[in-house]
Nucleic acid binder design. Structure first.
Lengths: 130, 130
DNA sequence: TAACTGTATTAAAGCAGGTAGTACAGTTGA
DNA sequence: TCAACTGTACTACCTGCTTTAATACAGTTA
């Protein structure tokens, strides 16, 4: 469920951060659901507990989860909008880069439309096999 | 003209790579134009010659420039398409991220349209003051 | 030939990501 | 009460990447 890719160049804690927000958006994690403990999840992923703790602390800073010492970490009041907003900020940067590289807004839009037709199937499948 | 931001978290050689492709796309650098020498540009930017050389070597690897030992580095046959293609690959990743985070293609497209109306003026101004 | 060019090499410093181990404080349930 | 869990904090260390530094070598140019 929380699977990440250790061969990726992006930091593990960032992948975990994104993965958990994804699960919330998809509805697989709901408000007040309990997350695995730092140590348990670290063992499951084969990474260091500190790395998981770092992801959890970032998620708590952004009010995506709340952590209670001695009890565990839980999904906060689901704020889909703020998650989307943060994502959109990252997306903005990518758009800016593309425009500077000479691509037009129309080219980007066309690309998104093509992308969408390819990506939908994969999203559907992902719901079952994890 | 080749200004970069030393406070950025992205590597200097990457910034320089992008900057030069930008200048080509904008038409400010044309085929067979001579680039500043590695040492000269390094002095201008206040960075190490090795860092500039690294950027130049990446640009040569991607056929954006060609370098002649003893002579200098020059803009290659301008292949706007391949530059755009590389940029589009990076853009794809950003789109995939956004879709996974629950944003819809329509939301992204709407965002690009708004973004465009904001960004155009800045692009126009940039041509003169560097 | 002097002064420029790109290129290559080695060494060192700085930083971020990740691991490892330990410790402390709060909670839970037997 | 107490063992076993929880999050949190801290130090130390390793690794890889980025950058700097100092040379050195080979080709070009005036």
């Amino acid at each position: 469920m929380f699977a990440i890719d250790l061969r990726e160049r992006t930091p593990i804690y960032e992948q975990l951060y994104k993965r958990i927000t994804e699960l919330i958006i998809k509805g697989e994690l709901k408000q007040d659901d309990k997350l695995p403990s730092v140590r348990e999840l670290a063992k499951e992923l084969g990474v260091n507990p500190n790395t998981v703790a770092k992801a959890f602390q970032m998620l708590e800073r952004d009010k995506v989860i709340y952590s209670l010492q001695g009890r565990g970490s839980f999904i906060a009041a689901v704020q889909t909008d703020s998650i989307k907003e943060r994502t959109l900020t990252a997306f903005d940067a990518a758009v800016a880069e593309a425009l500077k590289a000479g691509l037009t807004a129309d080219e980007l839009i066309l690309h998104i439309r093509n992308f969408n037709s390819k990506g939908t199937d994969k999203n559907e499948k992902e719901k079952t096999d994890e």
